[in-house]
Design a protein around this nucleic acid. Structure first.
Length: 462
RNA sequence: UCCCGGGUAGCUCAGUCGGUAGAGCAGGUGGCUGUUAACCACUUUGUCGGGGGUUCGAGUCCCUCCCCGGGAGCCA
């Protein structure tokens, strides 16, 4: 008698062997002479059907009263199913009710709205969709580590708590051990953070990039894959207050090498997930977004288009389109502009580089034209920007100049500047929002449904 | 944060001109059946998102707040 996961039974089970499965009932169908239990253990899309006959000792007392959501352990014989709809089923020899489910179990056999399921964070993973999301998310995470490990990138654990507001990448959550009702004050009346836990004002990280640069200038190629926090009041289907970010950083690398890595990364990870989760992906293509497999095939098969910001502006201006936000050289590309270029003009992913320095961060490499920086955005259909990155400014003089131009306090970047004094090297990297990648690969419309426990303004339940 | 659209039974929704609320599903009871979101009959269930206002009377009209969705901004 072997205890196996349902996935393994359906993939490689041998008929007429004894098996044990443990899981939760998706549905139950009781007849007078037989009960059908659809058991799922989360290991794969489909469950397995167990058939229980009235001869079983606890049939009347327990089995016949089983309801959806109950947890059971079934010992029995794996047999070829005489019924339609499944290859194997289990002729139960023993059905143990591990955990009874009350009759007000909120998950029904019919389809639920994702909004409703969001209020059931403790149960929604038992549904088809969230099970599939969790498995694809897992496969994508593994694919990401595999991609970098194959290339000898070192996985860097960047800090969660940070003292620097460096990047200015967004509003940050404060971290404090002070009693909020009795905060110590300085003479000028402000909070005296010198008395706080770290002796300074501390926050949750918005990016591991600057720490990744430290590591790249010692280990050559590194990547971070960890949680990131933004306290912006963003109420959209693409933003979370807590999300996971992937940030590779490479020494001896310029914007071209950065683009090459980003493209290879998306292609490899996508291919990997398509191969490792065929059933889940078929489900998403059938029930969630009927173009998702086609879109992903494009990612894997077709080369990404590459263009400069200046060329993108030119395309938009000559498109004959009237955009809500007019296009001119120097303005940021809006969602509508990115979508036009990706979905209508090119029809496949696009990498845009060399943006005006005024609309990009201080740390980006100043190009020879002294008007643009070596920034890079990877744009994909529907999601828009999925990757943002740049070649970093590794020259001390230029970096100092840019910090001044951006009105940032030089002293707070002392270590970042020192990296440019002690063996600086050209380096580049990018950031990828992991949930946006999962959204893109599953076709799920709302980012709150591709993370197990979403944190957004006004909501952090479960 | 801004602009739209919503919030009615456990879920998904309908509710006409302002006249005191309905369907399907789920749950319950009974029946039937190697069933597949099973089926058939009967049946329980409502602070109509909260507060205020207009009115003889408000699910319906007005104000306000909260929440959800779509889009935008910010961004990943």
């Amino acid at each position: 008698m072997t205890k196996e996961r349902i996935k393994d039974l359906l993939d490689g089970g041998v008929a007429d062997t004894d098996v044990t499965v443990e899981g939760w009932l998706r549905t139950v169908r009781h007849s007078k002479n037989v009960s059908f239990l659809d058991i799922s253990d989360g290991s794969c899309m489909s469950g397995i059907q167990a058939v229980a006959a009235p001869e079983l000792a606890n049939y009347e007392a327990e089995i016949h009263k089983l309801t959806t959501g109950s947890c059971v352990r079934v010992d029995g014989r794996l047999v070829e199913s005489p019924g339609k709809g499944q290859r194997f089923e289990i002729q139960a020899r023993r059905v143990e009710v591990v955990g009874h489910s009350d009759e007000d179990y909120p998950l029904q056999k019919k389809r639920h709205s994702f909004e409703f399921l969001r209020t059931l964070g403790h149960l929604r993973m038992r549904t088809n969709t969230f099970g599939a999301v969790m498995r694809v998310r897992n496969a994508a995470a593994r694919a990401i580590h595999d991609f970098f490990q194959r290339r000898s990138f070192i996985h860097l654990h960047a800090p969660i708590i940070t003292l620097s507001d460096c990047e200015g990448a967004g509003e940050m959550f404060r971290v404090s051990a002070l009693d909020p009702d009795r905060t110590p004050r300085t003479e000028s009346g402000g909070v005296d953070y010198a008395q706080d836990f770290f002796g300074k004002e501390a926050r949750l990280t918005v990016s591991g990039q600057l720490e990744a640069e430290i590591a790249a200038l010692a280990m050559t190629n590194v990547y971070t894959f960890g949680p990131t926090f933004r306290s912006e009041n963003s109420n959209t289907s693409r933003h979370l207050a807590e999300f996971w970010m992937v940030e590779p950083e490479m020494a001896f690398c310029d914007i071209q090498g950065n683009m090459d890595l980003a493209e290879a990364f998306l292609k490899d990870v996508t291919r990997d997930v398509l191969e490792s989760c065929p059933d889940d992906m078929a489900f998403f293509n059938e029930r969630i977004d009927q173009t998702v497999l086609e879109t992903l095939a494009h990612i894997v098969e077709q080369p990404f288009e590459r263009m400069t910001y200046t060329e993108a502006v030119d395309i938009l201006q000559r498109s004959g389109r009237s955009f809500e936000y007019p296009v001119s050289w120097g303005v940021n590309l809006q969602s509508e502009h990115e979508r036009y270029i990706v979905e209508e003009h090119v029809g496949r992913p696009v990498i845009v580089i060399d943006y005006p320095k005024e609309i990009k961060a201080f740390y980006m490499y100043l190009n020879d034209d002294e008007r643009t920086v070596a920034a890079m955005d990877v744009l994909v259909p529907k999601i828009g920007e999925i990757i943002g990155g740049s070649q970093r400014e590794h020259r001390l003089t230029q970096l100092r100049q840019r910090i001044r131009e951006c009105g940032l306090p030089e002293e707070e970047y002392w270590w970042y500047l020192e990296l440019r004094r002690y063996g600086s090297a050209p380096h580049a990297g990018f950031g990828l929002g992991f949930e946006r990648l999962v959204q893109f690969m599953t076709g799920m419309g709302n980012i709150r449904d591709v993370i197990p426990f979403p944190r957004v303004p006004g909501f952090a339940e479960f």
